[in-house]
Design a protein around this nucleic acid. Sequence first.
DNA 1: GGCGATTATATCGTGTGCGATATACTTGGG
DNA 2: CCCAAGTATATCGCACACGATATAATCGCC
Lengths: 143, 143
Amino acid sequence: MDRPLKIDELLCFSVYSVNHAISRLYRPLLAPLGLTYPQYLVLVALWDRDHRRVSDLGAELQLDTNTLTPLLKRMETAGLLTRQRNPEDERSLIVTLTENGRVLEHKATELTACVLEAMGGDIEELSALRDQLHALRDKLEQR
Amino acid sequence: MDRPLKIDELLCFSVYSVNHAISRLYRPLLAPLGLTYPQYLVLVALWDRDHRRVSDLGAELQLDTNTLTPLLKRMETAGLLTRQRNPEDERSLIVTLTENGRVLEHKATELTACVLEAMGGDIEELSALRDQLHALRDKLEQR
DNA sequence: GGCGATTATATCGTGTGCGATATACTTGGG
DNA sequence: CCCAAGTATATCGCACACGATATAATCGCC
């Protein structure tokens, strides 16, 4: 295939494009909670496992501290979490959800249902797509 | 499924995550050409169809002028394209590739091959994934 | 032909992402 | 015990995204 590819033929563009579409889908749903989409992803990670270091969060979300530090500071200001130096190792910072941050998990459940519905509602199909994307991500990361 | 989802179970996160992985893959490949990843996508669109209005580009790339205007200005400064008011309708702006911008298409061919290889090289599989993502994007947009 | 509505682009402010660099703390070898 | 190397987070600068708003040109209706 030597012919130059059109934009809609590029897998990378379809990923780019779907990512923005998803972000636009979440925006109005998250706005009433005072959350941005990346902030919501941080919360999802913290709801699962709390009281952990910034670098742990970063490893899971694939984000470095140059992104996470200001993001977490905004979330701290919003009263969703606390940032405390680890007494065992003063270099590291422990991120812990506040009651406010924990409570949002309930509201997020409806949100997930809403997103699922917007995506067509076929869980089998969407799970398969997710697994293919994970496989692709792993391929890209192992380089 | 009432159980709260973990981050790796969310399709939206896998898309988010793959998008960043792809962007990180392209970055070092595009850096020698002086391009960012979004700028590259603009070029792909322009290589296919040149001499068109900002809003046309925006419709194809799903970007509004608040993103495109500064992006295109940077590309104009870099000598990749020109921005000229349409004489037929002075409201609109016609974007045209310069020779410099057109020439990059050749170099991009190797780049596509490199990206394909990083993604595993199975064109059938990757095309199928792309088509699923397009279907998802269309579902999300029609809301 | 004038003027309000519409359209096309631009500007502003905020929030990510990320490369490069800085700072604070800990560890390990002499 | 001291200091160089390593580690964890922070800061800086730049480039997107995008909601909200502004500006300039055109259109349509009377």
